[in-house]
Write a protein that binds this DNA or RNA. Structure first.
Lengths: 151, 151
DNA sequence: TCGCTGTAATTGTATATGCAACTACCCTGA
DNA sequence: TCAGGGTAGTTGCATATACAATTACAGCGA
């Protein structure tokens, strides 16, 4: 019976698991964007952060993490790399703990240069996943931010 | 004007980027499952592989990678860790290049034990993302496998 | 002003991920 | 039988990700 139980569990997980599906799509789509951005020496994960910083003007790490549902330690390392490349710079702050950052001129130029690459990947992603996907994802994210988030 | 171009590009990307959204959902959902599976010393990425192996009986790495749209080098490392933990074992093969693997008895026990944890996370994910999400993801994946895949 | 509590970010450690280069092996044709 | 081309996996390297522990600082209350 244990063998049957296992088979049942395995079939259920294989047939329904949300994480398996989301993670698979995430891999495929991330590769699509990373391929299109490679000529610019940029990855989509980094472009996300550049865009968030550009929208915020001066970005506080914790705020960016809230917005992107990203662990602060992850952002810390990513920002570190991007500072080293000259795309981001830290802005002084009265609060000695804070490390707010913003785009450098070089970061702005990179973002502009890479935008056509993003556009190309975005079109491919729409073809692969279907037109309705942006709305479906937005709906899930709205729901996510409503239901209550811990991290 | 360059500033305007930048603003426009940033707004478009922030407002529509499929990758940003998918990656965000992926982080949230992965954390949900990883939290639920932590008591069993298991991560959802590893459970995926256990399940795939369980369904295949004897799994060829390249085949698993096709199925999960996973790079072979990634799987190689993951399987390595899981062999070290005694969950997977390599099956001898006439082809000296092949490294087909399967679940060990310990791996089967772990999968059974962890199934309730998966169930809990799956329910949370449905609440957070909405009921229709599994169908939407399945549709995207079918489309993905139809349109043509390189990796 | 001193100590306590809470907050912001970093650092140590482990896993996941992919590209490029490599190794080991198979098979086929001369 | 052996040389070439193709296939299956692994390894070197870089990035992304999160948890736990730590550091550094702010602010409040006695």
């Amino acid at each position: 019976m244990s063998a049957n139980q296992l088979q049942t569990a395995v079939d259920t997980i294989a047939g329904e698991c949300i994480a398996v599906r989301l993670r698979m799509l995430n891999r495929v789509v991330t590769n699509l964007y990373d391929d299109a951005l490679r000529p610019f020496g940029l990855k989509i994960s980094q472009m996300n952060i550049l865009v968030a910083a550009a929208k915020m003007g001066t970005a506080r790490p914790a705020e960016v993490c809230d917005h992107l549902h990203l662990d602060v330690s992850t952002l810390s390392r990513n920002v570190e790399r991007m500072k080293a490349r000259g795309w981001l710079e830290v802005v002084p702050d009265v609060d000695g703990r804070a490390q707010p950052f913003r785009l450098t001129a070089q970061g702005r130029r990179l973002l502009l240069k890479a935008a056509p690459g993003w556009e190309k990947a975005q079109q491919q992603a729409e073809i692969v996943l279907g037109d309705g996907i942006v709305n479906q994802l937005n709906q899930a994210i709205r729901r996510l931010n409503t239901v209550g988030h811990s991290r």
